[in-house]
Design a protein around this nucleic acid. Structure first.
Lengths: 226, 226
DNA sequence: GTCTATATCTGGATAGAC
DNA sequence: GTCTATCCAGATATAGAC
């Protein structure tokens, strides 16, 4: 499965993303016309991600955001009630998509080697589509509200557990050899995260996501099979 | 070489670290008594690292820092002239140590396998000793001044190149097989960074730095030799 | 639904007493 | 060499006109 195939497969549309968001937060959002709200939410989130990923969320002022989104300060506050709430909102929206897609894409595969490969590809391709969101989640994790932060940690451990479970399954089926599953899944996660954390580097070196994916799969495979 | 052996070997003393810093920045620092300055620099840097690693450098106010370091605002500004300068200072001090130690520890080893192992252990052990500094450098990289940031990127690429060169050497000596050296060195770096970026996780799981180190060496070795 | 104008406060930075 | 007191720019947030 290459990146383009994945894109078609999961079909995350921007429209849908913000529409879902709007419906989820109808109560908090003062603007009631759905299509107006969606259009502005898109502008707000895109500007917020772009600005915070450049200089950090707390260094981004609301004036910056206002200018970046092309909305007045007053208008911004019709969509959220404080800067901190905006932070949490971005995080939560990001999480919803990750959890949905990851689980959906790996279930139903029996062969552990294929399943592991699928999980790796899914994570990489998804981070490619949602790059600003993934980067934001990683870098701003420590600024999240207590509750949201707790959820974020849980999700991080959960995605790692996906790898753990696949390796365990393969081990029981005598397909993989006996390894330290905790450590293998931890470094798989680390390698997948490196892809979106240092995108500039890989871009500079003209390494495509497919190439990187193939390499990680090969590395892990060779360790588990050797 | 275990962690304790490394500690004795490199012998990075806190005293020495701040003394060297003071001498390097005599011109900028208004306080002239060396031992007074060293004592306060230690308090300032420790508080600054602790606070920024908790909530981010830009979210840390100078009043926070003043309270954390046990010095008044006025006193702080005898040691640096702006908050941004402090940021750059921390980064530069961190870099100086990393570059020195890394180069020093790997040179003179001929066998590529041993050399690679040494480089991995050195990086991990050093990050263990200098944890707050490493974490800070990673997380605050985007907030650095232009010049300092450029240097930081260079150092990052340089440390990666150390791994690249060792692998190349091993390949030419027919000890390692033919692999994508760029990618192998990139993911080695990623795994080493994960150790200090997610220390809480490894601590929680009772994984020691020696254990992690042995695992990474084993994984990389098995890929290069298979 | 969006804007402008403004209230209110917090941040970095410094002057001058000690 | 350090502290207190203070300045003022810039921050978040809101009220009220349109």
């Amino acid at each position: 499965m290459d990146f383009q195939a994945f894109r078609n497969r999961v079909n995350i549309s921007e429209e849908g993303l913000y529409r879902e968001f709007f419906r989820k937060h109808r109560d908090k959002i003062k603007v009631k016309k759905e299509d107006v709200a969606i259009r502005n939410l898109k502008k707000i989130f895109e500007a917020a991600l772009s600005l915070s990923n450049k200089k950090g969320f707390s260094a981004m002022s609301m004036r910056d955001l206002s200018a970046g989104a092309g909305l007045s300060m007053g208008a911004l506050y019709s969509y959220f009630s404080s800067k901190d709430e905006l932070l949490d909102m971005i995080q939560q929206q990001s999480e919803r998509i990750v959890a949905d897609v990851l689980i959906d894409q790996v279930e139903g595969i029996e062969d552990p080697r294929l399943k592991l490969k699928r999980a790796i590809l899914t994570h990489l391709y998804l981070s490619e589509i949602m790059h600003p969101w993934f980067y934001f989640s990683y870098m701003e994790a420590k600024n999240l509200g207590k509750e949201v932060q707790k959820k974020a940690i849980e999700l991080a451990l959960f995605t790692e557990k996906i790898f753990f479970d696949i390796i365990e399954q393969g081990e029981q089926g005598r397909i993989f050899r006996d390894v330290n599953k905790e450590l293998v899944s931890a470094v798989i996660k680390a390698m997948l995260q490196d892809w979106y954390l240092k995108r500039w580097k890989y871009e500079m070196r003209n390494i495509s996501v497919e190439e990187y994916a193939a390499f990680v799969v090969d590395l892990v495979d060779s360790y588990l099979l050797s």
